[in-house]
Structure formats: structure tokens, C-alpha cells
């Protein structure tokens, strides 16, 4: 993975110092200082042998600043945003899906279903742009100017608004999808024989719905959760850039544009790790929720 990215980013035309308009001997000197005049394979070996120890080297743009702490900080911001979006996806999606299923063919069901259709029809960048417009511009006085680049890093990212609005923009699509799947799956499960058995046992209706119906209805939901998490991760690149959130997604674009080679690879590596961990977590969740599955 890192090798492909490394080759890719190094094969882009130009180099880090294009914008500095250095030429001739001074350029050669700079290239030499950062080891960029060596063959790409040698550079890769140098990079990867440090990277496996958790050291991604130094940034070229920000002259000598170590990359690892930066990327980790950005990861924490992205994780905060992604986590909020995921919470929204599962929390809102499942709740609305269950409510719509239990109130099938009533106005509650129709309005929730309509809302969900809008939710996964509108692209996230449209919602994001509206979010910036409403909360960043129109409500400038209320929010204290959210989404203007924070100047200093004080350990955590943003205000409640600065977290919620991007999380909604990011999670609306996935939560609409989850709501729809949950609704369909609940409608299927609620007519299953074992739900009837539970009723015949005299179990309370609330318990029947949650313990017997919902637990089974969540199985198909869990199976789409993997792809949905990946769509949240990729979506975060767009969202972070629109809202100016100093996370991995923003660094991802910036580092490519500025040819900050090692940063790009580090960011890519983080994404690869995230996707891997997310899929593993989903698979593990699967075994918990469905005892018939064993690995």
C-alpha cells in the first residue's frame, strides 16, 4: 500500500520547492538536504524502515517538523468527527428505522421515509456548504464565527457547533441508509415466527421489540456498517476541506498539492489503518450480534 502511494506521489510532476522559485544549485542543495536526489527505491526504503517504528520522518514544507505527532493530532480530530458521524449514523438511523417500521404506513413512517430519501439523495458537500452558510455566516454572532481556521491548537478541536454541523453533513447520508435498512429489516423480522413465539410467551411488548426483533434486525445493518464506515472516512476528506477542519482529510489534500511526500504517505497509512481497524471491528461486532457466525 505505502509503496504504491510512495511511487505515485513521487511520480507527480514538480517537487516541493516549486513555489519557492529556487533554481539551479540552491535547488540541488535543498533536494540533497532532504535526500530527494536519491533513487526513489532508496528513498522508499529509508522511509519505510523508519515508518514501521512509528516515525514518518520530517515534513519538507514545514522544514524539519516531525510528521508523526502532526498526523496523530490530525487523526484525533478526524476520529472525533468520524466518531460523531458514526454515532449519528447508528443512533439516528436505527432509532428512526425502528420507529418507521413500528408505525408502518402511518404519517410517522411516511415522513421519516421521505426524510431518509432526501438524506441519501442530497450530496454531502451541498449540506456542508449550506452548513457553512447558515452556521458560519448567517449565525456568525451566535456561533462566534465557526469554521474560520483556528489559529492555535489547544489540544481539542472546535466547539459543539463546529463538531455537530460537519458530523451531520457527513453522517446524514449513512444514517438515512441505515434508517432505510433498519426499517426494511424490522418489517421482515417482526413477522418472523420467533417474534410470535415471544409474544405467545407473554413477554412485554417493549422487550419483544428490542430483544427479539431489533437484535435480529440489526444483523443486516451490521453487514453494511463496514462499507458505511469507509464512506464516512472518504466523505470526511470532502467535509474537512469544506469546513476547514484541521484533520487528516485536509492534510491529505494539502500535502498532495504541496508535494509534502512523506506527509502524504503518512496520511494514507493512517487511512489504511483506519479502514482495516473499522472492518475488523465490524466483523467482531458481527460475531457478537449473530452467534451463528464463527471465525
Amino acid at each position: 500500500m505505502s509503496f504504491v502511494v510512495f511511487l505515485g506521489i513521487h511520480s507527480l510532476p514538480g517537487n516541493t520547492f516549486v513555489n519557492e522559485r529556487v533554481r539551479g544549485a540552491s535547488l540541488a542543495l535543498l533536494l540533497h538536504e532532504y535526500g530527494l536526489d536519491r533513487p526513489v527505491l532508496v528513498q522508499y526504503w529509508d522511509f519505510i524502515s523508519h515508518a514501521v517504528q512509528g516515525n514518518f520522518g520530517v515534513s519538507i514544507v514545514n522544514r524539519g517538523e516531525p510528521i508523526t505527532p502532526i498526523v496523530l493530532r490530525e487523526l484525533s480530530v478526524s476520529a472525533e468527527l468520524g466518531g460523531a458521524a458514526l454515532l449519528l449514523t447508528i443512533g439516528m438511523g436505527v432509532t428512526f428505522g425502528v420507529i418507521a417500521a413500528l408505525r408502518q404506513n402511518t404519517w410517522v413512517d411516511y415522513s421519516l421515509t421521505t426524510f431518509a430519501i432526501i438524506g441519501y439523495s442530497v450530496p454531502s458537500f451541498v449540506i456542508a456548504s449550506l452548513g457553512v452558510l447558515i452556521f458560519g455566516v448567517w449565525l456568525f454572532d451566535v456561533t462566534g464565527g465557526a469554521f474560520y481556521y483556528p489559529l492555535t491548537w489547544d489540544g481539542t478541536y472546535g466547539t459543539v457547533v463546529e463538531l455537530t454541523v460537519p458530523a451531520v453533513a457527513l453522517g446524514l447520508f449513512t444514517s438515512s441508509l441505515v434508517a432505510r435498512i433498519t426499517r426494511a429489516s424490522m418489517l421482515d423480522v417482526i413477522h418472523q415466527d420467533y417474534v410470535r413465539t415471544a409474544r405467545a410467551k407473554g413477554v412485554k411488548n417493549r422487550v419483544v421489540v428490542v430483544r427479539h426483533a431489533l437484535r435480529n434486525a440489526l444483523i443486516p445493518v451490521t453487514s453494511v456498517l463496514g462499507p458505511l464506515i469507509i464512506s464516512i472516512i472518504t466523505g470526511s476528506v470532502v467535509i474537512e476541506n469544506i469546513f476547514g477542519i484541521p484533520g487528516l482529510g485536509k492534510e491529505f489534500i494539502n500535502s498532495i498539492l504541496s508535494h509534502d511526500y512523506n506527509v502524504t504517505v503518512a496520511v494514507f497509512t493512517m487511512y489504511a489503518l483506519l479502514v482495516g481497524v473499522a472492518n475488523l471491528a465490524v466483523d467482531l461486532a458481527y460475531t457478537v450480534i449473530d452467534p451463528r457466525i464463527r471465525y
Binding site: Q192, D193, Y194, R196, T197, A198, R199, A200, K201, G202, V203, K204, N205, R211, H212, R215, N216, I219, I289, D290, P291, R292
Partner: peptide
């Protein structure tokens, strides 16, 4: 009422169903 009937279901009148494969909850 539903709640009163619930107290009779499974307590005084129990029912067993046709298909034991689908009548038990697979995840419990």
C-alpha cells in the same frame, strides 16, 4: 386489554408452533 391478556399468554395458556426451526430466536 393487551396487558391483561399478556399475563395469560404463556402463563395459563401456552402455545407451541409449527416450525421449531423458525420459532426460536436464533440469536438467544
Amino acid at each position: 386489554s393487551n396487558e391483561e391478556l399478556r399475563h395469560i399468554r404463556g402463563r395459563d395458556i401456552a402455545m407451541i408452533f409449527q416450525d421449531p426451526l423458525s420459532s426460536l430466536n436464533p440469536v438467544l
